[in-house]
Design a protein around this nucleic acid. Structure first.
Length: 893
RNA sequence: GGGUCCUUAGCUCAGUUGGUUAGAGCGCUACGUUGACAUCGUAGAGGUCGAUGGUUCGAAUCCAUUAGGACCCACCA
């Protein structure tokens, strides 16, 4: 052991900083993260949800990466060719905005720069800052194959996106259309329906009277957006509505605009809502657009892309839509046409990203026909080829896919994948709308111009599982790689992108690869602040993972996040939660010293003893370890990482440290013998391996301290522990458990009677007739009691007498007497015994009630009944002995 | 208007196909620092599992109703 290691050994607290940097360099330098199909092992693949290039690491990443890394590392240790594919997303709007803002601060703008220079500027930004988040992920210990890192704007990826567009067009699944789309006036682009949130707000509903001169009447309509009336082209009533039947076919005069508009009958109109008559604005409302189509109504757009009234808005031209609203209402009121205003709960469409209120605008955009893609995706989950963990997310998935609407994929941005569509131009250089466009990756003919728009970012991310593996390049090597690694094994993600990304990847993989993208989907909960609110920049309630890593250590952060991550539940996170991880790291660190300080440098400690030759506590610990390995494997298979890790935690802290280490510790000044060290090392090594996927840094460090390791050996690539079949333990578990209970009982008495920790006591263990073998076993382990409960002269025998002035502990049919001499407080002891008797009797009553029930006896499984009988016998034995002890208590001290 | 989830100890939460004397971490109480760890140890207090009803031999767990909270979806102007 080197001097530096010796000095570390004496430092009391675990200090993560240097250790983390050292081992990350070691792993990467040795190529342990690389996955290579030439190993011919079974592959295990996870695709990292690519973070936005503009992003900084947040707690959601930290959580999901911890899980993905744990799974990746575990599979690697289990002998899989384990690939965790990293990447980053070009994030169209987000990235464009970041660079545009920077330009504005320089007093410039993207329009001043022009498209080409602006895009070049974004590339510069990406080259400079785009790698930041992936650097941060290294701090977490992410063991991704960085050599394979892909960006959704890489040349090969661009090709994949273009190919997909062309193929979908050829499959008849992409079309161009003039429809009402969700227009974001801030980002100046169309959005998909998924990018729009409906937010409920308090608002008003205005009732407006439209004159119908032909019938010398008025018809009242209700609206929450009065400014849109400027574009009304009809009034609709329900065909069965007696109140308005006589007006159908006549014309209203649209106030303010003095336009004659027809009164039409359409069963869409609800008679009992609002005024029972509906103003129809096909240019600014999706339902009205449909009504308009049914009645051949004109479509008039009165609001422009900046959400201001345009030239069709008469005197209101140039006003912002909300100013126009006020003016329209005021003018109607002045004309006496405003019937009334009521308060109303309105649902306002808002851009997911900019939070601006969406304006439905008539616009020509590109769409993907989704139904044909959705059907196979539904089937893949329905027939179990793809499984959700937790399963309930299936419902959300089915519901969305079953009612899926076409996907608007064109975006009026400059940063992104250009749409591979070309137009002929007129002699003036304008697009020649009289000629058909051509869908093509390359320019089909000189002089043709490419569509100005780019594609929705998700139109590239939905190809991630296969585009990152080289599709569609058809060279032999890429094909082989793709065939080897695709489909992948598990996707780990949050439910926030179930529709945006997860479901769409399934559709694209099935369509283009003819395969599912992944077998399992593990949906994590989302990280919230301690009050349950989303963490956000505006609230300033975020917790920075990097800060937490610096404060508590990466392993601590990972540990706490994993333990807090129960199946699908959101995590209310407080930074104090990382203390648990830090404390555990420290515990692991210090436990090593218990035996580590006795190890001779360079010596390899290997156990020579067979199981039967081990000490009782050693047998017990080994059995506990192997039972835990089994349980951990089961939990991991169901993505219950929190439970797996919780079990390892209990094993390490509650069993290994609290009992095993306490018992193998040599007395003052004595050495630890070689064979004892050998088993301590073996157990510790195995637990370090079990912990490695969750806490990679500290475990790698300690794994190297345990033994002399040769070049290229590392915990990260060591073989995952296999649970061995339980050896015949000859009752080790049971005897040791009894010994633990007795120890706790003696400690309890010591504590109650304030026996100073330094003062030893001499208990008597009284066993019933026939327990001779147990008596021998306990006698053989007197030193256990001595170490754990500071006992001396322990007397163990059959039907022994209770010493005078002693407290007693009853465990089933066994008794432990703790002589207290003058320390015993008779009143206290009497109370203690009475309390225990009461508790046991209540318990016995419950058990007997069950056992007295004939139904229970006849219907419950035999094993359950037998267990209850055993409880009854134990309780009876305990009560009898407790009563005996109570009676024997002298009246006075 | 549909749908999902949550309600368990003072706090934050686990709890698998129904059978445990319902667990953890933090906090609390008492005691304990001359060699693993005070980022610790030992002992302890603390819960009729939101409410009601049902199914069952048996319910924190399954079903129904209900109260409170969170979220998702939906074109009611």
């Amino acid at each position: 052991m080197s001097d530096s290691q010796k000095s570390d050994r004496t430092s009391k607290a675990y200090n993560p900083g240097e250790i983390e940097a050292k081992w990350y360099r070691f792993w990467e330098g040795n190529g342990f993260f690389r996955a290579d199909r030439s190993s011919r092992k079974k592959p295990h693949v996870i695709m990292m949800p690519p973070p936005n290039v503009t992003g900084a690491l947040h707690m959601g990443h930290a959580l999901q990466d911890t899980i993905q890394d744990a799974l990746t590392r575990m599979r690697r240790m289990q002998g899989y060719e384990s690939l965790w594919m990293p990447g980053k997303d070009h994030a169209g709007i987000a990235t464009q905005n970041v660079v545009a803002r920077a330009l504005e601060e320089e007093g410039s703008s993207r329009h001043a720069l022009g498209r080409e220079a602006f895009v070049a500027r974004i590339w510069e930004w990406v080259d400079e800052y785009g790698g930041r988040i992936l650097q941060q992920k290294r701090r977490l210990g992410d063991s991704c194959d960085w050599d394979r890192e892909r960006f959704t704007m890489d040349p090969g990826y661009v090709e994949a996106v273009q190919r997909v567009f062309v193929q979908l067009y050829e499959d008849g699944l992409i079309y161009r259309g003039h429809y009402l789309v969700n227009w974001c006036p801030v980002d100046q682009t169309a959005l998909s329906d998924e990018e729009v949130d409906n937010v409920e707000r308090d608002g008003d509903i205005w009732y407006i009277r439209y004159p119908v001169p032909e019938a010398d009447a008025h018809i009242t309509v209700a609206t929450t957006r009065p400014e849109t009336m400027l574009g009304d082209t009809a009034v609709a009533v329900h065909p069965d509505d007696e109140r308005y039947r006589h007006l159908v076919g006549k014309h209203a005069v649209l106030p303010l605009m003095n336009r004659k508009i027809p009164v039409v009958a359409d069963s869409y109109v609800k008679m009992d809502f609002g005024a029972g008559a509906l103003k129809v604005t096909p240019g600014h409302d999706k339902n009205d657009f449909e009504i308009g189509k049914r009645h051949n109504l004109d479509v008039i757009s009165v609001i422009n892309t900046h959400a201001a009234v345009n030239e069709h808005g008469g005197p209101y031209q140039g006003l912002d839509r909300f100013e126009a609203r006020e003016r329209v209402v005021a003018d109607l009121d002045a004309l006496g046409l405003l019937d009334r205003v009521e308060r109303h709960r309105v649902s306002v469409p808002v851009s997911h990203r900019s939070k601006a209120i969406i304006e439905p605008l008539l616009s020509r955009q590109w769409f993907v026909r989704m139904k044909p893609l959705a059907e196979p995706a539904i089937e893949a989950v329905r027939d179990g080829r793809i499984r959700f963990f937790p399963k309930r997310w299936e419902n959300e998935y089915f519901r969305w896919l079953e009612e899926i609407r076409d996907w608007c994929i064109s975006r009026q941005l400059w940063w992104g994948h250009r749409i591979p569509v070309w137009y002929y131009t007129t002699s003036a250089g304008e697009i020649d709308e009289s000629r058909d466009f051509v869908v093509s990756i390359e320019q089909p003919e000189p002089g043709m111009v490419q569509d100005n728009d780019v594609l929705d970012t998700w139109f590239s991310s939905w190809l991630f599982p296969f585009a990152t593996l080289g599709w569609p390049q058809s060279d032999k090597d890429t094909r082989a790689d793709l065939a080897y690694f695709h489909p992948t094994d598990v996707l780990v993600s949050g439910y926030d992108i179930l529709f945006f990304w997860i479901a769409r990847m399934i559709m694209s993989s099935l369509h283009f690869m003819g395969e599912i993208p992944y077998r399992d989907i593990f949906i994590t909960g989302m990280i919230k602040d301690k009050l349950g609110r989303w963490m956000s920049k505006s609230l300033g309630n975020g917790i920075d993972p990097i800060e937490m890593i610096e404060q508590y250590g990466s392993d601590a952060v990972r540990f706490s996040l994993t333990v807090l991550c129960a199946q699908g539940q959101d995590i209310k996170l407080d930074s104090s939660g990382f203390e648990m991880g830090r404390n555990f790291s420290n515990k692991i660190w210090n436990a090593f010293n218990v035996f580590g300080r006795f190890m001779e440098p360079g010596k390899d400690y290997r156990r020579q003893r067979e199981f039967q030759d081990l000490e009782l506590v050693e047998q017990w610990m080994l059995l506990r370890l192997h039972r835990t390995i089994e349980a951990v494997d089961r939990d991991i298979g169901r993505y219950r990482l929190n439970e797996a890790l919780g079990k390892i935690y209990t094993l390490f802290w509650g069993d290994y440290c609290d009992w095993y280490l306490e018992l193998i510790k040599p007395p003052f000044g004595e050495e630890m013998d070689e064979e004892t060290i050998a088993l301590a090392v073996e157990l510790y090594e195995t637990m370090v391996q079990l912990l490695h996927p969750f806490m990679p840094f500290i475990t790698e460090e300690l794994w190297h301290r345990l033994r002399q390791r040769s070049e290229g050996e590392a915990c990260i690539v060591s073989a995952w522990p296999v649970a061995s079949r339980a050896p015949a333990s000859d009752g080790a578990m049971e005897v040791f458990t009894l010994l633990q209970e007795m120890t706790t009982g003696i400690r309890n008495v010591r504590s109650r009677y304030r026996v100073a920790p330094g003062k030893s006591i001499a208990p008597v263990i009284n066993l019933p007739r026939g327990a001779d073998r147990l008596a021998v076993m306990l006698s053989d382990h007197q030193q256990y009691f001595a170490k754990l409960a500071n006992t001396s002269d322990l007397k163990i025998g059959i039907e022994l007498d209770k010493p005078d002035a002693s407290a007693s502990v009853v465990i089933r049919e066994y008794e432990v007497y703790v002589p207290l001499a003058d320390m015993v407080n008779l009143e206290a002891e009497r109370e203690r015994l009475l309390g225990e008797i009461n508790q046991k009797e209540a318990f016995l009553t419950r058990i007997r009630k069950k056992l007295d029930n004939a139904q229970f006896l006849s219907r419950a499984p035999a094993g359950v009944v037998e267990r209850e009988r055993q409880k009854e016998r134990d309780a009876v034995a305990e009560i009898t002995r407790l009563r005996g002890n109570l009676e024997e208590l002298p009246e006075h001290a």
